[in-house]
């Protein structure tokens, strides 16, 4: 079991890192031929950084759009962030002070995450329009995340896991000095689903996370009149055509 999970973790990490890097490089290399910021847009780079920050930190456009989706989505993502911060303690030694501070919040975050995901799924099933646009992968993604969260909470509240041994396993993975993984079914389910999530990340709609930063309607400065914008392929067209 230890060896299996160790190998899966290495593989999943590699897929996630290489897959994401590939996508980010692909996005960065694909030229944006025209200036298409959704206006009113900032007229300076500093303004664009702020706009982007508001999108990432506050989900500004979603807030304008739909308060319910915003609330549930924000609950889920905020809780996800806290939970991930809480999980850092399994990967670092000694544990940083702020990670210690975050621990209790991280725990409650689990419930918030479950509630947020549950509400999003509810909408997906019961709101006619959203049911229409949902495919199997959209439901499965929520099932997977609910599974991860529920199994995580189960280990905190139902049958506690040997955290010390788990940490040894994780640190062992990182130091290439494998230590035994506690043979508990809930833990294995939890880790198995996390591995699945890591692997599908670069192949699924989870690409919205890097995608947002490359969205031309959000990341372009509104200065088309002041500064000439020309994609490399368009420059070639110009050179050949005139």
């Amino acid at each position: 079991m230890t060896a299996l999970f160790a190998i899966l973790f290495y593989a999943a990490t590699a897929v996630l890192a290489v897959g994401l890097a590939f996508k980010v490089v692909q996005y960065a290399r694909t030229p944006a031929p025209l200036k298409i910021p959704t206006t009113p847009a900032p007229v300076t780079t500093g303004g664009v950084v702020l706009r982007m920050l508001r999108e990432v930190v506050l989900f500004e456009s979603l807030f304008k759009s739909n308060k319910w989706i915003w609330l549930f989505g924000y609950m889920f993502h905020g809780a996800l962030l806290l939970a991930m911060m809480r999980h850092l303690r399994y990967f670092i030694h000694p544990v940083w002070d702020w990670v210690v501070l975050v621990q209790p919040f991280g725990l409650y975050a689990g419930f918030a995450m479950l509630a947020g995901l549950g509400a999003l799924w509810f909408r997906r099933i019961f709101v006619q329009r959203i049911r229409y646009i949902s495919g199997p992968s959209d439901h499965l993604m929520l099932v997977l995340l609910i599974g991860i969260t529920a199994s995580g909470l189960a280990m905190s509240y139902v049958s506690r896991t040997d955290i010390v041994a788990l940490k040894q396993f994780m640190l062992g993975l990182m130091r290439f000095n494998w230590q035994p993984l506690p043979a508990e079914p809930i833990l294995m389910a939890h880790l198995g689903m996390v591995i699945a999530l890591m692997i599908v990340f670069p192949f699924s709609k989870l690409l919205h996370a890097p995608g947002l930063f490359f969205s031309p309607t959000r990341n372009q400065v509104d200065n088309a009149r002041e500064k000439r914008h020309l994609a490399p392929w368009a420059a070639k067209l110009e050179a050949g055509g005139e």
Partner: peptide, 24 residues
């Protein structure tokens, strides 16, 4: 077009089907 147009590439990948646009 995918190779020439960043918007197309990023937008085809990024939609999470949140439904926020469905009534717009």
């Amino acid at each position: 077009l995918l190779d020439q147009t960043r918007s197309l590439r990023v937008y085809l990948d990024s939609c999470v089907r949140c439904g926020a646009c469905t009534d717009k």
